[in-house]
Amino acid sequence: MTRSIPSALCAFAFLGLAVSACSPTVATRGNMADPDRIAEIKAGQSRREDVADILGTPTSVGTFDQNVWYYIGQKTEKVAFFQPSVMERRVVVVHFDDAGVVREMKQLDASDGQQVEMVDRSTPTAGRELSFLEQMLGNVGRFSAKDARGRGPGR
């Protein structure tokens, strides 16, 4: 009977570890702008400085138009070793006029995005591929006695 108590405790401890390992991990990345804070920004009234004070530094600024600011954030959930799933994604796009006043503001979510399929091809390069052994032994015999004596530049 005394042997069954430690084995039962070990089984419960293992079961507790297994259950806790399956609890999801939630991660927030980027700038998940609060809707109440976004409502403070008014088109035609708010300036660049106001937007920066309310939402913070933009995640990105338009590449071809410096008058467009992007605030990008997403919340993901990951269980154990599985790929994370996106729970929420929010993008706030703020357009300014040349005077720095908010002209337009749009909010986008995950439904506005597009899935991009990655290409698994690789670009061929000139030459040939070396095996691990060829890479390790490739320099054997390539050094001269002059190099072994430590003659450096200027000697």
Results as ranks from 00 to 15, higher is better:
Thr63Val: 08
Val102Thr: 11
Val91Gly: 10
Leu108Met: 12
Thr59Gly: 15
Arg90Ala: 03
Ala99His: 13
Gln107Ile: 12
Ser20Arg: 08
Pro124Lys: 11
Arg142Met: 12
Pro58His: 05
Ala99Asn: 14
Ala43Asn: 13
Glu49Met: 13
Gln45Phe: 03
Gln66Ser: 15
Glu104Trp: 02
Gly62Trp: 00
Lys146Leu: 06
Leu108Gly: 12
Gly152Ile: 06
Gly56Leu: 04
Ala33Thr: 14
Asn67Lys: 15
Leu9His: 03
Val140Ala: 06
Val92His: 13
Arg142Leu: 11
Ala18Gly: 03
Val61Pro: 15
Glu40Tyr: 10
Gly141Ala: 08
Val94Cys: 07
Pro35Ser: 06
Ala13Gln: 01
Arg89Val: 06
Val92Met: 12
Phe81Ile: 02
Met105Pro: 00
Arg155Glu: 12
Phe64Val: 15
Asp65Ala: 12
Thr76Val: 12
Phe82Ile: 01
Val51Cys: 12
Lys78Ala: 02
Ala99Asp: 14
Gly152Asn: 05
Gly73Glu: 08
Val140Phe: 02
Asp34Ser: 05
Ser122Gln: 05
Phe14Ser: 11
Val61Ser: 14
Pro35Phe: 04
Ala126Leu: 09
Phe81Cys: 01
Gly150Val: 10
His95Phe: 05
Tyr71His: 12
Val51Arg: 08
Met87Asp: 04
Lys42Trp: 00
Ser60Asn: 14
Val116Ala: 11
Phe96Trp: 13
Leu133Ser: 02
Val94Ser: 06
Gln115Glu: 09
Met105Cys: 06
Asp112His: 07
Asp112Ser: 13
Thr125Lys: 11
Pro6Arg: 12
Ser111Cys: 01
Ile5Ala: 09
Glu88Ala: 10
Ala110Gln: 13
Val86Leu: 13
Ala33Gln: 11
Ala18Glu: 01
Cys22Gln: 03
Ser85Pro: 00
Ala18Ser: 02
Leu55Glu: 10
Leu9Ser: 01
Val116Ser: 04
Thr57Leu: 14
Arg103Asp: 15
Leu17Tyr: 03
Leu9Ile: 03
Ala99Glu: 15
Gln45Ile: 13
Ser46Trp: 00
Phe81Met: 01
Ala18Ile: 02
Ile41Gly: 10
Leu137Cys: 04
Ala148Trp: 03
Arg47Phe: 00
Thr28Lys: 10
Leu133Val: 07
Glu88Arg: 11
Val26Asp: 03
Leu108Asn: 10
Gly56Cys: 01
Lys106Phe: 07
Val92Asn: 11
Lys146Pro: 00
Ser111Gly: 02
Arg151Ser: 03
Asp50Gln: 07
Ala126Arg: 14
Gly30Gln: 14
Val92Thr: 13
Val51Tyr: 03
Leu130Asn: 01
Arg142Thr: 09
Ala21Ser: 05
Val51Gly: 13
Asp147Gly: 07
Ser131Thr: 06
Asn139Pro: 07
Gln74Pro: 06
Gly138Cys: 09
Gly100Asp: 09
Thr125Trp: 01
Lys146Arg: 09
Val79Gly: 00
Val86Ser: 05
Met87Ser: 04
Val51His: 07
Ser144Tyr: 02
Val101Gly: 13
Gln45Ala: 15
Gly141Tyr: 05
Arg48Leu: 13
Gly44Ala: 08
Ala148Asp: 06
Pro6Asn: 07
Val86Glu: 10
Ile38Tyr: 06
Phe14Gly: 08
Phe82Leu: 01
Phe14Arg: 05
Gly56Ala: 09
Glu134Val: 04
Ser131Trp: 00
Met105Phe: 10
Lys42Gln: 08
Val140Lys: 04
Asp65Thr: 14
Arg89Lys: 14
